[in-house]
Amino acid sequence: MTALLQGLAIVAILVGTGFSVVAVAGYIRLPDVYCRLHAAGKVGVFGVTLLLVASVALGAQQPGKAVLLLLFLVLAGPATSHALASAAYRMGLGPRAARRNDLPPPPPR
């Protein structure tokens, strides 16, 4: 049982680290701010979630607390993504790489 849980923890840590690497690679490679937001948001949701799974499997943390923290991350992550996208839009930073843009330009202030 312990060996099984440790195996689960190892897999979760490896996959979580993989997602972090992909997120940073996306932040460097993708062409504009809006695209980068998609990649960066994944560290919070996948990377930290999988590390929390590993810590619960190793008995370093109570499951109830981990579930609450997971809920917080899933609820708050999109809010920051949207706030950053909205800030970029209102500052007039257009989606340079876009193939199609249905969004009207921001109101002048």
């Binding site: 490679r29 062409p31 809006y34 790489a97 876009a98 193939r99 199609r100």
Partner: peptide, 8 residues
């Protein structure tokens, strides 16, 4: 990186 970004 075959992305086709855009706003719908």
């Amino acid at each position: 990186m075959p992305i086709r970004p855009g706003i719908l």
